[in-house]
């Protein structure tokens, strides 16, 4: 092997270890009942248990926050699609200028960090629509905004890869109504990018901490942060589940995303 290649392999191995070690450590901590100090070659494989996970799963606090996070994630994905798909499709068809406006507005959340967004939100609605701050579902719009740069990009790529005009003309000339055209022609052709955008929205909501923390809503990440003290093993185990889950979502999004491009 040439020395140059060896150096590049070294880079891969070092970074690979850096990626791997924290995850392995978390797994070990969560599922092995041996403190690090007492760990040795003789007991590496003993006292492994999934009990911490099971105990946490049966905890009512966990259940309610997990359910809340799941519902928030679903609501965010749905609201994102309802808001973006029709608007972006029509902008694509009719107005390049509007398309540009949407494109620029979609990266705005990038300039307003989540912490600034949520304190502004709380201040703005505390006196006008306090229900929005009291109900956990008031956070859904903020999640939609936080995920917007990613979801918009995905849908934009999906739309750009379609020859929308021709599809619609073909469908309309065959006598389909507008509603039929949207439901049976446009949406199926955008399935991949819609799926990708949804997965991205789910990932963002399941991991998001700032917004819920400022509004004191008991989502899963908040539960983890506070359960860390009394039930470290359990909360680390759930943290790991969350990692695996969002890894799954991201990978699924990538898979679909590739289909968008090809």
């Amino acid at each position: 092997m040439k020395p140059g290649r060896l150096a590049w392999w070294l880079v891969i191995w070092v970074v690979g270890l850096f990626y791997l070690i924290p995850m392995l450590s978390m797994t070990r901590f969560a599922f092995q009942r041996i403190p690090v100090i007492k760990l040795s070659f003789n007991n590496v494989f003993s006292k492994w248990t999934i009990e911490p996970l099971l105990t946490t799963f049966s905890d009512s606090g966990f259940r309610s926050s997990a359910m809340l996070s799941i519902w928030l994630a679903i609501a965010t994905a749905v609201l994102t699609l309802l808001l973006l798909v029709p608007t972006m499709t029509i902008a694509h068809l009719r107005s390049p200028r509007m398309r540009r406006v949407i494109e620029i507005s979609a990266v705005l959340p990038f300039v307003v960090p989540a912490i600034a967004l949520v304190v502004g939100f709380a201040g703005a609605f505390r006196d006008t629509i306090p229900q929005l701050i009291r109900s956990p579902f008031g956070m859904v719009p903020l999640y939609v905004i936080t995920a917007l740069p990613f979801t918009h990009r995905t849908l934009e790529n999906g739309l750009a890869s379609l020859d929308l005009r021709t599809l619609i003309d073909a469908s309309r000339s065959l006598g389909a109504s507008w509603i039929r055209t949207v439901l049976f022609v446009i949406v199926p052709n955008m399935r991949a990018s819609i799926a990708t955008a949804s997965f991205l929205a789910l990932t963002v909501v399941l991991g998001e901490f700032t917004i819920a923390s400022l509004l004191l809503k008991n989502t899963l990440p908040l539960y983890l942060a506070y359960a860390q003290g009394q039930n470290p093993q359990g909360s680390f185990a759930v943290g790991l589940v969350l990692v695996v889950l969002s890894a799954g979502f991201v990978t699924a999004a990538n898979r679909f995303g590739k289909r968008v491009v090809s």
């Binding site: 978390m26 991991g207 990692v243």
Partner: peptide, 19 residues
Amino acid sequence: SVAANMGGIPLAFAFLSAF
């Protein structure tokens, strides 16, 4: 793409248990 999306609480847990 998985790691770039990671962050938040679980990542902190992972590094606490490693470092």
